[in-house]
Amino acid sequence: MTITQLHYVLAVAEHKNFTKAAQKVFVTQPTLSMQIQKLEEELEVTIFDRTKKPIQLTEVGQKIVQQARNIVNESDRIQDIVDQQKGFIGGIFRLGVIPTVMPTLLPMFIKNFINKYPKVKLKIEELHTEAILEKLKEGHLDAAIAATPLELEGIKENVLYYEPFVGYIPEGHSLHKSDKLDVTELDINDMLLLEDGHCFKDGVINLCKASRDYEEEQLQLESGSFETLIKLTNEGLGMTLLPYLHTLDMKEKDKKNLKMFKDPVPAREVSLIYNRSELKMQIIEALRSTIAGVVKGAITFQNVKIISPLNNKKELKLN
């Protein structure tokens, strides 16, 4: 059994196709097939059911793939140990970022990071939390930036910052004249929300501590972008909540519609998340310190209450 064979097994398990898997690992399809067959003969089991389209893992194959991921990750640690010993910060680093963080946070730190660590080749994907967790599990991401706490076994969370929720309320709305918002004043049925899959939407629902009554609504609308929500709010279709960093570059006429909350300010926790195997920790730490450095000047709130994206509506007060 070789680590190369295990790489081939993982590739076929991912793509469910020998030809695509061979392309992924840069070998010919016959070479990949032969090596997997040799492994199956050595173990005296069948890892893949080739009679099904697409190819499926057998019951024992599923267990082998799970262990193969652990072995491949641990083998990668050898190079990781050498890099850390040498103080080398470089190589390919695959980072996932949730959509409600990507457009605001990325421009704040990416240029600084690239200039400071020119040997790191960043590959960044915008993904919803569910897809991020799946890719972290499968080893297709080294780390991600997501809303936490997620409280998942095998995943570590390194908090970057706490980002307040901000109300966006147009003139004519009953809450527009309020100096500061009170959470108890919020009506989820008056709220324009992001579409399903966005953890920011889950946070808003948890903040309001209510379920939505869709049967009573004349207009049911959920959008994938804050810009759309802002435009619809300006048309008098309700109010919405925004993450604080999204409000910094808004037009002055729109900033007049922003309302902060009373203390403790409801906020989301944004963290770097990664596998407990802690591969490429030198790059993860470089990212953390770079992001913390630029965000510290932008978010200075002290008394906040963390609103969890989890369904259990967990809250955490920080003073």
Rank of each mutant, 00 (worst) to 15 (best):
T2F: 02
A13W: 06
H15N: 14
K20H: 02
V25A: 01
V27N: 01
Q29G: 03
S33K: 08
M34A: 08
Q35V: 05
I36H: 04
K38F: 05
L43H: 05
V45C: 04
R50K: 13
T51W: 02
P54F: 03
P54T: 02
V60C: 01
K63E: 06
V65P: 00
A68W: 00
R69T: 06
I71Y: 12
V72W: 05
D76M: 11
Q79T: 07
G96Y: 09
M102I: 05
M108R: 07
F109Y: 08
F113M: 01
Y117W: 13
K135C: 00
K137L: 13
A144E: 09
A146M: 07
G154W: 10
N158I: 00
V159S: 10
P164G: 01
V166I: 15
H173Y: 15
S174R: 15
K177S: 15
D179F: 11
L181S: 12
V183N: 10
T184L: 13
L186R: 12
I188C: 11
L193P: 09
L194H: 08
G197A: 11
C199G: 03
G203V: 05
K209P: 01
S211E: 15
S211M: 06
D213E: 09
E222C: 04
L229Q: 10
L232F: 13
E235L: 13
T240Y: 01
L241T: 05
L242G: 11
L245I: 11
H246K: 12
E252P: 00
D254S: 14
F261T: 07
P266I: 01
A267D: 05
V270D: 01
Y274L: 02
L279D: 02
L287C: 04
T290D: 13
A292T: 06
A298T: 07
F301L: 05
N303R: 14
K305H: 08
P309I: 01
N311A: 12
N311S: 10
N312L: 04
E315M: 15
